[in-house]
Nucleic acid binder design. Structure first.
Lengths: 207, 207
DNA sequence: GCAAATTAATGATTTATTCAAG
DNA sequence: CTTGAATAAATCATTAATTTGC
């Protein structure tokens, strides 16, 4: 019969909830080992693969950025209009820099104390952990790693690098465009998964 | 200690030669299984990983395109100048369309009969092959695939698709910009690796 | 109500851009 | 300067929402 071979991953509400929680906590580009662990944990709630997690973070991050860009553009537009209006009225009260503004709480609020989660098992995502699980050496890629997730054998010193940007608190510098990077906490050790299975909280988006 | 742990892959001349030959034969975006096989074969000539092969093809393709773009831009510029000149001189002899031109042999010459190779072992990269090696089912991703290369479990009907473009001979249509896609032969079955080890033909780029 | 048609979200791939080693 | 490596942006394609005509 082949009952629609399920061409693409369809995340369960629990999986989605956990992924969003991780994202809200600052995880943006998980390493291969992190992806593996997340996948392992999420696979409890339904079929899932590493690439699904990887793609989810990529897409979520990108679309968040894009949403913010639109919002900021609109805001800038408003500001521009307002400023013109103010200029026209000879008020000119603040002359805000378009680079340094709108980064305080407009970007993302990472506090959000009314999370649906209450207990977490803290999982350490440190270099030690990676060495301990990856197989050890990290000096001679042991041919086993190759048939793993790609990006798995991280290039030795790539554990905390996030390319051009520093992963710590550039929320208030505003480089050249809204390429924000929130990163509320060191991002090395993340408290992750809920210990109790939600199983039924799926239909409560915002009580 | 740690005598510079060889931060990145340094392809041997043989590896490079084979990769370039594969590229010249039309391979542009190898599937995970292809990458595995290529990697396996190339690992005979030196340490290599799947991601190296993957990145090599990505970069080569991208930089080829970019090179061509530059060349075409320059050509267009020349044409433009020439045309203006011609217009200025009231010659106007051909009025060539900028879309339909320069696709005949400017893009890439895939014939090049003076290849340094003479014998190949043909390796079939067909759907059958993929099924046979991937583990079989392709309907229920068997959890083993997950810890493979990503992109490994192709979405069932993804074997020949090349996105918007047809992989066969659009070399003369000139769509809207030089997003060329040569693909000189069906790309399903590729003759691949030389049976004799070249070992010393590495320094003959064009005799 | 409900199924076909349209549209919006979003998972999955490819392409462009960037960084850095040699 | 070339090129391996990695991420970000753009794009494709499929599933879910939503609408529309009955």
């Amino acid at each position: 019969m082949s009952p629609s071979p399920s061409t693409r991953w369809c995340p369960t509400p629990e999986q989605l909830m956990i992924l969003e929680e991780l994202y809200r906590r600052g995880l943006r580009t998980p390493k291969a080992s992190q992806i593996q662990k997340i996948t392992a944990h999420l696979s409890f709630y339904g079929k899932i693969q590493g690439k699904n997690v990887f793609y989810w973070f990529q897409n979520h991050k990108a679309r968040d950025r894009q949403k913010l860009r639109k919002k900021l553009a609109k805001q800038l537009h408003q500001h521009h209009l307002l400023q013109q209006q103010q200029l026209y009225h000879h008020h000119q009260q603040q002359q805000l820099h378009p680079q340094t503004q709108y980064n305080t709480h407009t970007i993302l609020d990472f506090q959000s104390p009314n999370s649906p989660f209450h207990h977490y098992s803290s999982i350490c995502y440190s270099a030690q952990n990676l060495h301990a699980q990856g197989g050890g050496v990290c000096e001679e890629v042991p041919e086993e790693v190759m048939r793993q997730t790609w990006k798995a054998d991280l290039p030795k010193d790539f554990l905390m690098r996030t390319y051009g940007h520093d992963p710590v608190m550039i929320m208030d510098v505003g480089p050249t465009f809204p390429c924000c990077r929130p990163s509320p906490r060191p991002l090395e050790t993340l408290e992750l998964f809920p210990l109790r299975s939600p199983t039924a909280n799926a239909k409560e988006p915002a009580s």
